[in-house]
Amino acid sequence: MERETSIGKKADEFLQMFRKGEEFTQELLKENERLRFKLAQLEDAVERSGDEAKVRLYEERIKVTEDELNSLKERFRQVEEENKDFAAKYVEVEDENNNLANLYVASYQLHSTLDFNEVLRIVLEIVINLIGAEKFAVLLMEEKTNELIPVGAEGLAISDVPKVRFGEGIIGTAAREGESYFSENIHNNKGSNSMENPIVCIPLKIKEHVIGVIAIYSLLIQKKKFSNVDYELFNLLAGHAATAIFSSRLYTQSERKLTTIQSFLDMLKEKPRR
């Protein structure tokens, strides 16, 4: 009986131990499951944080690239502006070159001869071809009579151009003042039918001494207005044409005098022989 009680007690103790073991196992299983869940969460977090870092990296790269693109765009815009400036300057330099070529040719031609008629022809050519005048006349100062006498004309008969008294009318005043005259009618290309009222009057001057005048009455139909180079040409004509005309006149006169003196000397030499 006592032995049976002892076996029952041991069985209870074993049962209790077994139950505790079961409970412990249950707890271990729960803990394991909890840890597995935690691990899965951590793994997921690690994975997610890796993607975010990559996204941040890519975003930074995009930002740098965008900044570079904007900087390149700005540089491109600046280069384009510079190009435009260069193109404008190139056109300006080309225009200036062409103008200088015109002035050089005009000056070269004016001083290429000492023949008065040829100089006069060159002046007429310059006024037609480089300035674009249709009707005009060249008048030279006659000191003895104090008059401006027509010596050459284009687009009109020289006989139609009247002599002008120094200081009288537009032509005479331009000669006296030594200042160029430009009519208000230039830019509507109407021209002038009156020989006393040219649309442009350019005094031919050697320093301040006026030796003549170029009077323009109308421009070629296609010539709508004067450009900067035209005014430069007027200045050039005022000085260079005057010098060329004056020199050629002096040369022609001296040639004539030389021929006369030579003939006179020849006559003197011939006399003793008789």
Binding site: A101, Q109, I126, L130
Partner: peptide
């Protein structure tokens, strides 16, 4: 025929 124009055009 004009020497002035001839020179100018040739120049260009």
């Amino acid at each position: 025929d004009s020497p002035t124009m001839r020179q100018l055009i040739s120049f260009a």
